[in-house]
Design a protein around this nucleic acid. Structure first.
Length: 307
DNA sequence: TCACATGATTTTTA
DNA sequence: TAAAAATCATGTGA
């Protein structure tokens, strides 16, 4: 409906006997909607505030101050420095909140005083004073929320910095790596240890079962990649007359899920006294047996020498 | 300082 | 849901 049509209708609407009543009802409904929207917003803000409190309490930044005990308990562990930093965040938050509360109190007293003085000259009811003070309290709560939010952000950063496992990664000991490698190569046709085996390996290597699983996951994928790369290089280095025609058997190593099935067991080739063809390296021996790698390299330099 | 190795995490796949 | 694959972040040696 355009403006012209609306203007034409206006006089007719105003002479309608229910005009005033309808308008009153609409105004009342609108105020109810506004009120419920405000309530929803307040509720949401309260929930967010509670969430911050929960997190800060869980990390010991808010709630009962047992920071020193937590630091003591973390002594000698990875969490020690993290706990110390959390205490700093706690003290900062406490100081800022205290200073802010002090200012708020002063400000409230000042405003109350001013309102009381002005009340002598203009009509200021107790109700309107309370309303004003409530509004101010709402503003103060918002600032408190921001302070808590800042503390939470700092905690998240600290968590990232001190507790992210990737950041505190340590290489396994040489012995542990050897034990894992030995099992992997001895079971190269099916390098998928059972839960029991994983537990045994974890105990032997002094690492967790999850770390053993990670290690085998990484090892399988990286071993396949190394094999594929070496195979490609070997094929590229062949003389043109030795290369199979396109599509014939001898195509590049495929990265299918069962790529380990039927694969030559390199572990066997590491056994003492094993002879392997001159110029052929099934995979990078240097990763597991430097002596064999040296032997292989020597065979490349002296192809006529019998081993 | 840089390239590569390696343990952990996240995303994708079957 | 486990394994594969991709990715991240740190460790290490030249």
């Amino acid at each position: 409906m355009d403006n012209e049509a609306v203007n034409k209708l206006k006089p007719q609407i105003k002479i309608n006997p229910f005009y005033r009543a309808v308008q009153d009802v609409l105004v009342e409904q609108k105020s109810k909607i506004d009120l419920s929207t405000k309530m929803m917003k307040d509720l949401e803000a309260q929930e967010n505030d509670e969430r911050l409190d929960t997190m800060l309490k869980a990390e010991g930044v808010a709630g009962p101050d047992d920071s020193l005990l937590r630091i003591q308990e973390a002594a000698g562990t990875d969490q020690y420095e993290y706990r110390q930093q959390l205490l700093k965040v706690r003290r900062e938050l406490e100081n800022e909140t205290k200073a802010f509360d002090k200012h708020c109190k002063k400000w409230c007293e000042y405003v109350e005083d001013v309102l009381q003085q002005q009340g002598e000259f203009r009509p200021i009811t107790q109700q309107s004073t309370e309303k004003f003070m409530n509004k101010m309290s709402g503003k103060f709560n918002k600032v408190c929320f921001v302070l808590k939010q800042t503390a939470c952000e700092e905690v998240i950063q600290l968590k990232k910095r001190y507790l992210d496992a990737r950041r505190k990664r340590r290489n396994f000991s040489k012995t542990s790596t050897e034990i894992l490698n030995e099992y992997f190569l001895a079971n190269i046709n099916h390098p998928y240890p059972s839960e029991e085996v994983k537990q045994a390996l974890a105990m032997q290597c002094n690492i967790s079962v999850a770390q053993v699983s990670n290690w085998f996951g990484n090892k399988r994928i990286r071993y396949k990649k190394t094999m594929a790369k070496n195979e490609d290089e070997r094929r590229e280095n062949r003389k043109p007359e030795d290369r199979p025609p396109p599509g014939a058997p001898g195509a590049p190593y495929s990265l299918v899920p069962n790529a380990f099935a039927g694969m030559m067991n390199p572990y066997q080739m590491m056994l003492p006294g094993h002879q392997f063809p001159i110029g052929v390296a099934p995979f990078n021996f240097s990763m597991y047996n430097p002596e064999m790698m040296a032997q292989y390299q020597q065979s490349l330099q002296n192809p006529n020498q019998t081993r």
